[in-house]
Structures are given as C-alpha cells and as structure tokens.
Design a protein around this nucleic acid. Structure first.
Lengths: 74, 74
DNA sequence: CATAAAATAGGCAAATTTGCCTAAATTAAG
DNA sequence: CTTAATTTAGGCAAATTTGCCTATTTTATG
C-alpha cells in the first residue's frame, strides 16, 4: 500500500496549528514569513489537505516559539 | 527556497524512534509490519536521512501504542 | 454597502518521498 | 568461527509535496 494517509489526524493537526497561530494574533502570511514557508502551504496544512513533512513541522514550531511536541497536543 | 530540511531535527527524531522501538524489543521489521510501512523506510527514518510525512509519524506512534507527542520528546 | 485584508483554490514544474526489490554490511547468537 | 538475524544501501517508477503564481472567495473593518 502506497502513501499512507491519516486524514483525521492531519485535520486535527491543522486545527491545532490554526489555534496556536491565532492565539498569537498572526495571519497565515505572518507565520509563513516567519517560518519561511509558502502562504498557500500554511493554508493547506491548516485545512489538513496536505501530508506535510517533519521538517516543516519543526520550522513552524520554531517560528511559533514552541516545542514541536506542543503541536501534537490535541 | 524549496524543500525545507532540518537535518539535526530529523536525526534527533530518528534516534528517539529507535530508542522507543528498542524499548519494546522490536526489530525494524516488526515495527514496519505493525505500522504497515516499508522496512527500508523505517531504516531511513531512524537514520534521519528522510524527511518523513506527518501521516507516517501518526501510524508509527499508533503502532507503538503511544501518543505522537511522545515521539517529539527529546 | 464598500473597501481592504485574509484565506482558499487550482494549475504547473521540479524536487522529494515511498514502496518495492536485491545486495551488501553489520550485529547477534549458537 | 559460522550461521542467522537485523540493518543499511541503492536504484527505480509512481505518487506526492512544495514553491510559485494568479484568481476567487470569505472575513473583517470603516
């Protein structure tokens, strides 16, 4: 079986990210700039339509000033 | 800039995974079967040579019987 | 309502991942 | 030491991701 996908988990992860970003009062663009990731990619991640990579998770956590682990608390 | 990579973080993540897998006394093959992921892919992840996807992290955590968050505790 | 800001959508090309396979190398065990 | 078990390595094709771009939709604001 190719390309494992976990839609529900990706959705939850995206919602968690959105929550944390908004808690900072940031727009997707602001987060995108800080993490040096494309705005459209942030949107895709938050909507859970993409199976993001670990590295992007790391740089996003860094941009948010928190531990990666906190993005998985849901 | 294309394809963000965080080699150090990927390395740490891989080491953490190996640690947790061995704590269970499992071979890579055993984990691979349980998570329904290729053996060679488990090897790549543990060595930190690949920028794995979120979904694989989720299914691996599931196979290990733990929360994804625990894989990021290092 | 009107305007601006923010988020979503979709297409495209290049880069990367992933499963599948075989072979080699390392480690564990008898 | 020998053999088996485990892990690493590498190539390949197909699938997916990602950045880049433009347009559209939704949400916020005056």
């Amino acid at each position: 079986m190719k390309y494992t996908r976990h839609p529900e988990a990706l959705k939850k992860f995206g919602e968690r990210l959105r929550e944390l970003r908004k808690a900072k009062g940031w727009s997707q663009e602001e987060l995108a700039n800080r993490a040096d990731i494309e705005l459209s990619q942030i949107s895709r991640i938050e909507r859970g339509v993409i199976n993001t990579s670990l590295s992007q998770v790391f740089v996003i956590a860094e941009a948010l000033g928190m531990e990666p682990r906190e993005l998985f608390t849901f």
